[in-house]
């Protein structure tokens, strides 16, 4: 466990909590893509099946359970509790465009052809594109609430820190996981455009709005 990994996990947790607090306080999920949140719940569900098969550490187990619970609470808030505030009109990204290629790829390119390993690979590939419905929604409406941009910032920061973690692990342990690294880099690239807007607009006190 290195500093990048810990900060990455903290940043990931913070992003998830920011989103939950935003929805809870404003009693609204306006501007949030329910589809992205469904994908994240699916990501955690398919990745953390090893909770039933292997014990890694208390930290690992507790974090996995927290992520799972938070993901399902978020989906529940959007589709049940605050359903009336959900902007389904603008959450129009076609999920099959992500799910079909991701499913196909996880069968083709995995570490071993076993159910758990294929599902783990599926979750890695799916996570790399799961934010696209959210980014699509923002580009469609042309704006995002500042708190939503903080959520995206910490989610992107988590990805960037994981890359630093892999560089560190490669140099210290000669460890790298090609599937995780390639997907992780792809995922981080999706945040670059957003990072630029966050730094040039949000951090200068302006609302994120697209021309």
């Amino acid at each position: 466990m290195n500093i990048f990994r810990i900060l990455g996990d903290v940043s990931h947790l913070l992003a998830i909590i920011i989103l939950l607090v935003k929805i809870h306080r404003s009693k609204s999920c306006a501007g949030i893509s329910g589809k992205s949140q469904i994908l994240f719940a699916l990501v955690f569900t398919t990745r953390y099946l090893d909770l039933f098969t292997t014990f890694i550490s208390l930290y690992n187990t507790v974090m996995k359970v927290i992520f799972l619970i938070c993901a399902y609470i978020t989906v529940y808030m959007i589709y049940v509790k605050f359903r009336k505030t959900f902007d389904s009109e603008n959450d129009s990204f076609r999920l099959e465009f992500l799910l079909v290629p991701v499913t196909g790829l996880s069968f083709l390119e995995n570490h071993s052809f076993t159910p758990l390993e294929i599902l783990w690979t599926f979750s890695i590939y799916l996570e790399s594109v799961a934010i696209l419905p959210q980014l699509f929604m923002i580009s469609k409406t042309g704006e995002a609430e500042t708190i939503t941009t903080h959520y995206l910032f910490f989610l992107g920061l988590y990805r960037a820190l994981y890359i630093a973690n892999w560089v560190w692990r490669y140099h210290t342990e000669k460890f790298y996981d090609q599937i995780a690294v390639v997907s992780g880099v792809v995922q981080t690239i999706f945040y670059c455009d957003f990072f630029y807007l966050y730094v040039t607009k949000v951090l200068k006190g302006k609302k994120l709005s697209l021309p």
Binding site: D50, S57, F67, D177
Partner: peptide
């Protein structure tokens, strides 16, 4: 194996 260690990440 090498990739199994990857599962310690979240």
């Amino acid at each position: 194996g090498l990739h199994a260690a990857g599962k310690d990440e979240l």
